[in-house]
Nucleic acid binder design. Structure first.
Lengths: 258, 258
DNA sequence: TCACATTTGTCCGTATGTATC
DNA sequence: AGATACATACGGACAAATGTG
C-alpha cells in the first residue's frame, strides 16, 4: 500500500516537454527512424495546435537529447539523427569538470573499464570484428607512412574492441572514456604526438596478432602493457576559481555583429 | 600539416548555443555555484543584448544538460542546480532503448561493473563510508519492520559503494546502472517485491559485516552471490514496430484543455 | 549570376498560469 | 484576497541561411 508515487505531481509537465516526449516516443518505437525528416516548425505547431515557441522549446530538448539535428535553409528542418552517444560523452566530461575530478581517477577507471571490455571482446569477437580491427591497423599504418598523425584511427581501435564485446553498455562507456581522453589530449605538444601514435599503432598490431594467433593470456598481457596513463601534466579540466560569487550575478554581454 | 580540423565549421554556432556555453562556463569555473539564482529571462536578455526567445532556447539547453532548473512564480527563475548524473542516466536508458539492447546484455555489464566498483570500495572505503552504509542498512530494516518496501534504500546501498570507491567515474556509471535497473523493475509484481527487498537487505548486512570484520575474499564472494540477475521477463525496453514510416510523417495532435 | 521559395533564427508585444508576499 | 514577479505561451513580423530555377 504505502508505496512510492504518492507525492508525484510536484509540478505539472510543461506542454513543450509533453510534445518532446511524444516525438521521442515516435522515434523510440520505430515510427520515426534516423534519416526521416520532420515537418517544419510551423507545420508541427499547427498539428499540435500550439504556437511555434512551444515547438522550438521541444526541438531544443530533442536536439540536446541526441534524437534530432536541425539543418538550416530551404531544404532544412528537423532531421531524426541518433547522436545520443555523443551527448552522453559530453555530459560525462561536464560531470567530471563539475566535480573537479582528477586525471588519476580517470586513469584508474579507464584501466579497469578497458580491461573488462577487452576480456569480453576476446571472448565474443567474430570474424567481422577481427577484420574491422585489421582494417583499422592497416589504415593507421598507411596514414603514418604518409606522415599523417592518425590519432583518430588509434582511438577507433578501442571503439572497435567495445563493439566486438557485443555489449552496447560497454560501447557507451568506452565511447565516453575515449571522449574524455580526447578532451585531455587537446593541448599535448605536437612533436611527441606522431611518435606516440606510431608506438600505439605497433602495440595495436601485436594485440591483434595475439587475438588471432596467440593465447588469451598473451593478448591480455599485451593489452595491459598497452594502457599507458595519461600524464597528469595534460590535465586541463578546469578547477581554478574558488567560487565566492553567491547571490545574483551579473552576466557579461556577448559581442554580436549586427 | 594535413591534420584533421580542415572541415570543421559545418555550420556556425547559433547565438543561443553561444549564450548557453558562456553560462555553462561560468558554472564550470566556479563563478556560479549550485544554489545561485540567475537573473530573470528579460534581465539576462537585456544583459546579452538579445531577445527573450534566444535566452529561452539557451535555458532549455542548460536545463537539459543538467546545469540549471527553472522554478515558477514570484521568487522563481533559473537556478543553478547540478542534475547532470540524472541526465546521463536518462540518456543511457534512451540509448539502450534506441538500440533495442537486451536485458542479458545489461546483466552481463552490470555484473562486471558492480564487481569492479566493489573491489575499489573495499580498498578505499574510509570510516565515514562504512558508517553511511551501516546507516543505510539500519534505515532499510526500520522500514521493513514497518512493512514498507524500502526499494530506494536498497538501491542507495550500491550508490554508497560507488561513493566509497573514491572514483567519480564509478559513481557516474553506477548511477546509470541503478537507473537502468529501476527502469526494468517498474512493472514487477508487487507481491514478490517486499520479500525480495527483505532478502536483499539481509545480504547487504552480511556484505557490510564482511567489509568491516571479515576477509577481503569473503566480502567479494558474498557480493558476487548478491548480484542476482534481472529476470528477462521484466524486460520492457520497447522493440515492437519495425519502422517502415520513411519520409515526412504526420504527427498526432495533443489534446489540451484550454 | 540572380532572384525566389522555404525554413530556422530572432525580435517584439501581449496574455496567462503560478508562486510569493 | 490582492498585488507582484516570474516563466510560459501565443501571434505576427523580419533577418539569415540554403537550395532551386
Amino acid at each position: 500500500m504505502a508505496d512510492a508515487k504518492l507525492f508525484e505531481p510536484i509540478h505539472k509537465r510543461r506542454p513543450f516537454e509533453q510534445i518532446a516526449d511524444e516525438i521521442k516516443t515516435l522515434i523510440l518505437d520505430g515510427t520515426l527512424n534516423p534519416g526521416d525528416k520532420l515537418p517544419s516548425e510551423p507545420e508541427i505547431a499547427s498539428q499540435f495546435h500550439v504556437g511555434r515557441q512551444t515547438i522550438r522549446d521541444a526541438m531544443r530538448i530533442l536536439e540536446q537529447s541526441g534524437f534530432i539535428s536541425i539543418e538550416l535553409g530551404a531544404k532544412g528542418g528537423p532531421l531524426v539523427k541518433d547522436t545520443i552517444l555523443h551527448r552522453i560523452s559530453g555530459l560525462f566530461i561536464d560531470a567530471l569538470k563539475m566535480r573537479r575530478s582528477s586525471v588519476e581517477e580517470f586513469n584508474v577507471a579507464r584501466t579497469e573499464l578497458e580491461n573488462i571490455v577487452f576480456r569480453h571482446a576476446l571472448a565474443n569477437a567474430d570474424r567481422s570484428d577481427i577484420e574491422a580491427l585489421a582494417e583499422n591497423v592497416r589504415k593507421t599504418k598507411d596514414k603514418l607512412a604518409k606522415k599523417e598523425a592518425a590519432w583518430d584511427e588509434n582511438v577507433e581501435f578501442h571503439r572497435l574492441l567495445a563493439k566486438a564485446s557485443k555489449n552496447y553498455l560497454f560501447v557507451i562507456v568506452m565511447e565516453a572514456v575515449c571522449a574524455i581522453q580526447a578532451d585531455f589530449i587537446i593541448g599535448t605538444p605536437k612533436e611527441s604526438t606522431i611518435d606516440r601514435v606510431r608506438v600505439t599503432a605497433e602495440e595495436h598490431q601485436k594485440i591483434l596478432d595475439a587475438m588471432t594467433a596467440g593465447t588469451r593470456e598473451e593478448a591480455m598481457r599485451l593489452f595491459d602493457e598497452h594502457l599507458v596513463e595519461v600524464p597528469a601534466k595534460y590535465f586541463r579540466l578546469f578547477g581554478k576559481k574558488t567560487g565566492q560569487g553567491r547571490g545574483n550575478v551579473e552576466l557579461e554581454p556577448t559581442k554580436r555583429g549586427r
